[in-house]
Design a protein around this nucleic acid. Structure first.
Lengths: 221, 221
DNA sequence: AAATTGATTGACAGACCAGTCAGTCGCGTG
DNA sequence: CACGCGACTGACTGGTCTGTCAATCAATTT
């Protein structure tokens, strides 16, 4: 029933306070969870720490999420959804050419909103714990499968257009592993390289797979 | 691993019992730690659970390792050393041809003694927690750097021999990411593929990088 | 202004866990 | 045989963490 929408920024706070506050708090607590997991890892992430990161009491975390388990599950779902929307939007904006689509996919995976230190670290933390928790695997298992399907479709079109004669699922897997791996290298490596170097590595892999579509870039401008 | 030490051999007990028993127990407890981490993840690995997995009391774990932290650190060091020796032995046995060396490296990474469900899962668990714990990163940071150096050296020789004109560090990184990624896919994927399919993917990546040395694989052998 | 409703707090309870310790067991030695 | 010593056990402790709850606060509504 609340519908008034004055576009004033101070007025934004005067929106229906109960229901809206609920969503604001949940997002805020999920962000705090990501930060905490990045800083302390999965095992040492406590509700008290999450609450302190958000500047709130730990009772409130339970008020909004009921259990710690649910908070973590929702945080993972939040990350997975954010990731999915990111590449899907990029793909939708890339037009119909498969080469442009693949380039857009690579670009999207290293976009600054997604490829953040805290988010990378949180992904790693979840990922390490997930294989012993089926509930977590579902959240990003679906996301991965969708991504794989999209990538294979693009590779199939490139493969046909260029007459490369590749084993499409396998070539798509090599590309995915390079992208994901470069992504995670940014987190793992003792001496990390830059995001743009990671992206260039992924592009180089695309060049190996489809040289006629991604001309092998000597490192020039 | 030449010495998995199957228990229940009366002959094994005839050796100096105190000192040797100490080593046997430590290995046994480290193996139990790997199993426990694979089954329950890092966060839910408790000393009591490790002890029960080994059929011993939890007090004994502390007797041999002093603290839980040290147990985990030694388990990670154990895994890292096992991994390192595996590929270095394979490399040493591969002769002088860089193509054979690269093939041996790939083969070694998917060898049955190393590429075990429990070991893969334990690696994942450590890996997810490590980025918030510098002490862990050291253990496998060194190992990784050694591996990278070896792989780059091989790639450099192949690159020169075949006149490929590759950016060597980058091409070596693509290969490493494919190998590591395929390795971890075995753990992560909701619908996992087989070890031999993972290995074939790594070989296919080698074929993309060095087609004249790794003729695009119809299945050989 | 009083009442209502939902958000928020912090003290508290119950559970669990790492680490301690006093004592037991088993084997080799004097 | 008795003694010593190292391996081993399990009850116990102190601390921490999750989850509960009654009280409080803020924003509407009556």
């Amino acid at each position: 029933m609340p519908d008034p929408a004055p576009p004033d920024q101070a007025a934004a706070d005067s929106r229906p306070p109960r229901t809206r506050s609920r969503e604001v708090r949940r997002s805020q607590l999920i962000e705090a969870t990501i930060e905490t997991m990045a800083a302390r890892g999965f095992a040492r992430t406590t509700l008290t720490e999450v609450a302190r990161m958000a500047g709130l009491s730990h009772g409130l975390v339970l008020f909004h999420f009921e259990t710690k388990e649910k908070l973590l599950a929702e945080t993972l779902a939040y990350l997975a959804e954010e990731y999915r929307r990111n590449w899907q939007d990029a793909l939708a904006a890339a037009g119909d050419e498969p080469a442009a689509q693949l380039a857009a996919l690579i670009e999207a995976d290293f976009a600054p909103g997604i490829c953040t230190p805290a988010r990378l670290a949180a992904w790693c933390a979840f990922w390490g714990e997930a294989q012993s928790r089926p509930m977590y695997q579902e959240s990003y298992g679906d996301k991965d499968e969708e991504y794989i399907r999209a990538l294979e479709a693009i590779c199939a079109r490139l493969n046909e257009a260029g007459g490369y004669g590749h084993d499409v699922p396998r070539i798509a897997r090599i590309l995915r592993l390079t992208i994901e791996g470069a992504w995670l290298d940014l987190m793992t490596m003792a001496r990390p390289y830059t995001v743009s170097e990671a992206r260039d590595t992924a592009r180089a892999a695309a060049g190996l797979c489809f040289p006629r579509h991604f001309p092998v870039g000597r490192r020039s401008g």
